[in-house]
Write a protein that binds this DNA or RNA. Structure first.
Lengths: 203, 203
DNA sequence: GCCGAAATTCGGTTTTATCCTAAGGGATAT
DNA sequence: ATATCCCTTAGGATAAAACCGAATTTCGGC
């Protein structure tokens, strides 16, 4: 199968074209220790990239939504696991060795880098409610700044992203709900009622 | 002052050469919000890159030692602060727009990225002693895997890097000392006595 | 070698999030 | 429609780190 890429999402369009790959909920995209030679662009669905400690503690380093690219590594080995959160379509971009390839990859990598560095402040220095506030703000911005946001991931995933337990995540949601900052319509749909308050909480 | 770059540290040697800049202890290299157009390579000394919350809470995203390059940003604005920890010499690499420039920068940026992502696991999921163990292991590896390592930064800096208070850092050091895993010769010199134990603690 | 300021360590208390258990809701399959 | 399972919420006890105050050590300057 050959797909002709024409400034698709204006991202990484010089990479070797590849078929769209489908992943079921929870399905592994790659594992830590595997050799890597590709990047991955989410077409639809959502992905979690994470690392594990020997005893099972998990830290999700990032979620990736439609249009976003992941899979950057410093050497030829994956240092993380990647899984589809729900039914997900992914464009696999095999690495070629073109001259100006890096110049297209660098901006994408730098965006991931800055986001990672900013997330360190959250993990290292913010309390539970602040972390949830940051998370909801982030998700909203990445979904176009809407007041109504959809969370593709479970509370456990959110906890493992924010360095919290599921109970603490749940309690923080409850607090935000009770103070009228957000409303929940089902578990996965959040309405941000008081944007400014939420934004201030995130500092 | 002109310095001729000849594959110096085999890093970023195609960038526009620039004079070596000296910074006093605590001196600011750049600030959040400033425009950026350069990268920085540490020649000697050490640098902390950090972010602040409104109330002063600080998270150091990384330390940079001799030979390492920092200052990567996703756009034309600095999102972090950078300061010299002690007397530091820095090569300022003005950004040029050469064709194969990005291909030399990308590996450096990716190394910073992977390190940042790995640090998230520490901040999100590891306890105080584990964090110190990780930190000492890291510092040792970055100084060539020696048993005797030098810490250029204060306990406060270490705390702000590991998401701990200075008291907790101090107590963790005390525990490692009492269990015979490390020895301290002064505040800034650590001897790793039981490498394997320390390494296991870091998980 | 001594002195003084600053940094670090120490002790005790408080706070916060975790841990553990159990009850409640939602989605899916029957 | 209903039963079942899994995820989520809730409640209370526990533990870990933060907070506060004070003693001690370290290190640069004299």
């Amino acid at each position: 199968m050959t797909i002709h890429l024409t400034a698709f999402h204006q991202q990484a369009d010089r990479m070797a074209p590849a078929p769209l790959a489908f992943f079921a909920p929870g399905e592994e995209i790659y594992a830590q220790g595997e050799r890597c030679g590709s990047l991955y662009r989410v077409e639809f669905g959502a992905v979690r990239v994470y690392r594990l400690l020997a005893d099972g503690r998990r830290q999700i380093s990032a979620f990736y939504l439609a249009g976003e690219t992941f899979g950057f590594e410093a050497d030829d080995t994956h240092h993380f696991f990647a899984e589809a959160i729900n039914a997900t379509g992914i464009q696999v971009l095999r690495k070629a060795h073109g001259a100006n390839l890096a110049s297209e990859l660098l901006p994408l990598a730098l965006q991931v880098l800055v986001r990672a560095q900013e997330h360190m402040l959250v993990l290292g220095r913010q309390n539970a409610v602040e972390r949830i506030a940051v998370f909801l703000t982030e998700m909203s911005e990445r979904q176009g700044g809407l007041r109504l946001i959809e969370l593709p991931m479970s509370r456990t995933d959110i906890g493992d992203y924010l360095g919290l337990t599921i109970e603490t995540v749940s309690r923080a949601f409850t607090k935000l709900k009770q103070s009228g900052v957000i409303k929940l319509q089902g578990l996965r749909n959040v309405e941000i009622v008081k944007w400014q308050v939420l934004s201030d909480m995130a500092s």
